[in-house]
């Protein structure tokens, strides 16, 4: 159903990827699982890190939203600090998703979230608290984790 649209978006993203983002299929034969490499944006504690982001498209795409998770461990209020690394994006919620939203927009939004976390929409409350109240410490840990996990 949505395979044409996905193929189209993949072609567009491969041809002219947004800044700091490269996409490929996790497995050549499965266009529903994408491997996205995201460079930590400049000005964020994730700078110089390279993060693997897994993008999973439902069979009902674009009528159902994709889901985004981090394959690289990252210290961030909006990414679960477990083995799943799920990322919570407002635009990906079932009741906010629009079939016209494109994967490129999703990825750019995700990258923007690295620059500017949304502590009020956090999945990791503790990190969100720290981000709000003790930014220096948050930056420090985030940078350390980036060095440790995202600079292999």
């Amino acid at each position: 159903m949505g395979s044409k649209r996905i193929a189209k978006e993949l072609a567009e993203l491969t041809e002219s990827p947004p800044e700091g983002i490269t996409v490929e299929l996790a497995n050549e034969s499965d266009i529903y699982q994408w491997k996205v490499y995201m460079d930590g944006p400049e000005g964020s504690p994730y700078h110089n890190g390279r993060f693997l982001v897994k993008l999973s498209l439902p069979t009902e795409y674009p009528f159902k939203p994709p889901s985004v998770s981090f394959g690289t461990k990252i210290y961030h209020p909006n990414v679960t600090n477990d083995d799943k690394g799920s990322m919570c994006l407002g635009m990906l919620r079932a009741d906010e998703w629009k079939p016209s939203s494109k994967i490129a927009a999703v990825l750019e939004f995700a990258r923007q979230l690295l620059v500017e976390p949304m502590p009020d929409d956090a999945v990791e409350g503790r990190i969100a608290e720290q981000y709000k109240n003790d930014r220096a410490r948050y930056d420090e840990i985030a940078r350390e984790w980036t060095r440790k996990y995202a600079m292999a």
């Binding site: 034969s29 499965d30 529903y32 999973s56 498209l57």
Partner: peptide, 12 residues
């Protein structure tokens, strides 16, 4: 429906 190597995969 995963069929290794098939062109059309549903991801299901």
């Amino acid at each position: 429906d995963h069929v290794p190597g098939a062109v059309e995969q549903s991801g299901f």
